[in-house]
Amino acid sequence: MEIAENRDAEKVNVTVTVRYFAILKDQRGLTSEKVSTEAATLSALYNDLAAAHGFSLKQNQLRVALNDKFVDWQEPLAEGAQVVFIPPVAGG
């Protein structure tokens, strides 16, 4: 997935794996995908994906996990990372 139109020399392109659950899985039509992105943070990555695929959930309705741990939205992305956006939960 190509996100940036004009390549900024300072931007770094990384490839991450995004796994989708629940409503995001339905809206994306996939359980996971590799995403090549110049997004610097998880927040930027979600905004890019939400715009590209029409996700209905706003970022403030979600939590985010990086490599199987809850993390802050401002966490930077590293090559090969696994990202999961976590919709409002409903266990129990």
Partner: peptide, 20 residues
Amino acid sequence: RLPIWKKETYEGGSSDWVNC
């Protein structure tokens, strides 16, 4: 806190992810 989601299917066949 647990990352678990619940999809309910209702009489008539419609369904929803609860809380979403």
